[in-house]
Structure formats: structure tokens, C-alpha cells
């Protein structure tokens, strides 16, 4: 190689330029493209980590400050529903993995099946979440002007609190349950929002998968979506014990 020229390396790489139809113009090779895409997706998830990180920071501070309120408020959540949701989401994570696997093996039918299954599990998850939200709204546990302290200052009036064996909280502590529910709705709401976005993309993928978009060797999109979906799962894995399981004994 001559010591001082900006020479092109067309000769060296000529063999590589068979130009896969999925290779974007800016990349030199499929591997470079795959690497870049994968890295970009992880970087995006990194921003998501920081996004939820802000919420977890807030949670950490207030849980330490208002522990008794957090305990009582957390008892209002149903471990059963939360547990079911955890399993649902983990299952949807599994079906997503299987979807990616099907795409890689170019099995169109099973890809569509698993994507739809993932979507369905997401719907059920959100449905259950909706039921939980509805209950909170009805009991005026949604923060804001209508927030009610009834279940905390007078747990006897609330079967859920009775079942959890809650003792009445003094007013000033009970008021702090609103902080808990602010966080509960912010965190699960942001999580649900991510799921809704994800399910929109799932629908889009199901639609496109029918015309063989991912089963002819170009599985990147499904894989990247899989990363996103698993990430949403990871967030829930932390949300579940932190929000539902505070001092249950």
C-alpha cells in the first residue's frame, strides 16, 4: 500500500459487494449493518433505563421517607393480579423469543402465531391493569383533588385493608399514601405506555409478517423489537416487588 494516499479499497472488498437486498446504502456489509443496528437498539434501551431511572430515584427517596404510608398503600394492590400479570408478561417475553426464533428459521406461520400470542398476552396484561386502575379510581386512590384517605385512616371500612390486617394510620402519615399512588400511577402508567407503543408495533409487524417481510432472512426488525419487549418485561420485574410487595408479612 502506498504510504500516502486516500485510496479506495474497492479491489479488496469487491467480493463482498453482492448487495443483499436488505443492505442499506450507508453500510459496507451486512455484518456492519447488523452490528450497528444492534448497538443502536441497546443505546436506545440505555436511554429507557435512564428514563425509568429518574422514577426509581424518586421511589427510593420517598419509600425511605414515608415507609409506613408506602406499606399501607401497597397493601391496597392485589398481589394476585400483580402476580398474574408478572407471569403473563414473562410468558409474552417467551412467546416473543419464540417469534424471533421462528423468524430466524423463516417459519412464517409460527412467527405470526407467536406475534399474535404476544399481542394477546399484552392485551390481557393491560386488561388486568385496567381492572386494577378502575378499582383505584373507584376507591378514590387516584392522586388529585378527589383523593380519599378512607382506607388508611379507617381500614375497617375497607375489606382490602382488613384482609391485609392494616391498622389505622394517623392522618399525617395517611396523607403520604398519595405520594405512593402518585408514583404507582406514574411508574405503571409509563410502563403501560411503553406496552401500548410496543403493541402498536406488534400489530404492524403481524401485518407485515403476512407478506413475508421478516421470513426471508432479514430478521433485524423483529429482533430489535424483541429487545424492546424484553426490556419492558425487565421494568415490570422491578416494578412488581417494589410496588406490590412492600412488607406483606
Amino acid at each position: 500500500m502506498s504510504d500516502s494516499t486516500v485510496i479506495a479499497h474497492d479491489g479488496l472488498e469487491a467480493g463482498h459487494h453482492e448487495h443483499s437486498p436488505h443492505l442499506h446504502h450507508q453500510f459496507e456489509s451486512v455484518e456492519q449493518q447488523a452490528d450497528a443496528g444492534n448497538f443502536a437498539m441497546w443505546l436506545f434501551l440505555l436511554t429507557e433505563v435512564m428514563f425509568f431511572g429518574g422514577l426509581f430515584t424518586v421511589y427510593m427517596i420517598y419509600r425511605n421517607w414515608y415507609y409506613p404510608a408506602f406499606v399501607a398503600a401497597s397493601h391496597q394492590l392485589s398481589v394476585k393480579l400483580g402476580g398474574i400479570n408478572s407471569v403473563l408478561l414473562i410468558t409474552s417475553s417467551l412467546t416473543m423469543t419464540l417469534g424471533v426464533w421462528s423468524a430466524q428459521l423463516r417459519r412464517k406461520g409460527s412467527l405470526i402465531f407467536f406475534l399474535m400470542l404476544t399481542f394477546l398476552l399484552g392485551v390481557v396484561f393491560l386488561g388486568i391493569k385496567g381492572v386494577e386502575y378502575k378499582e383505584k379510581f373507584e376507591k378514590h386512590h387516584f392522586p388529585g383533588a378527589n383523593y380519599s384517605l378512607q382506607s388508611f385512616v379507617n381500614p375497617a371500612s375497607d375489606p382490602v385493608a382488613v384482609a391485609a390486617g392494616d391498622k389505622p394510620l394517623p392522618l399525617d402519615i395517611a396523607q403520604r399514601t398519595e405520594v405512593y399512588f402518585s408514583l404507582y400511577f406514574a411508574m405503571t402508567g409509563m410502563h403501560a405506555l411503553h406496552m401500548i407503543v410496543g403493541m402498536g408495533i406488534l400489530l404492524f409487524m403481524i401485518f407485515r409478517a403476512r407478506s413475508d417481510a421478516y421470513t426471508t432472512g432479514h430478521t433485524a426488525f423483529v429482533e430489535y423489537f424483541g429487545l424492546y419487549w424484553h426490556f419492558v418485561d425487565i421494568i415490570w420485574i422491578f416494578l412488581f416487588p417494589l410496588l406490590y410487595l412492600i412488607n406483606r408479612h
Binding site: E31, A34, D35, G37, N38, V79, G83, S86, V87, I90, T91, S93, L94, T97, L98, V100, W101, Q104, L105, T219, A220, E223, I237, F240, P241, L245, N247, R248, H249
Partner: peptide, 30 residues
């Protein structure tokens, strides 16, 4: 890199471990 094919068996094992984890957290929290 990026798109190594994961054997579904691994996925199932991970799945079982995760579900067990959920059970374990719930039990532990009581």
C-alpha cells in the same frame, strides 16, 4: 453477533426460572 439463534430450550428454561422467580419473590415477601 446480533442474531444468533437461541435454542427454544434455553428460552423455556429461562422462562421457568423467571416464573419461579416471581413465585419466590411473592413467597419471600410474606
Amino acid at each position: 453477533s446480533g442474531h444468533r439463534i437461541i435454542n427454544p430450550r434455553v428460552s423455556f428454561l429461562v422462562y421457568l426460572a423467571l416464573v419461579a422467580g416471581v413465585g419466590l419473590t411473592i413467597v419471600a415477601s410474606y
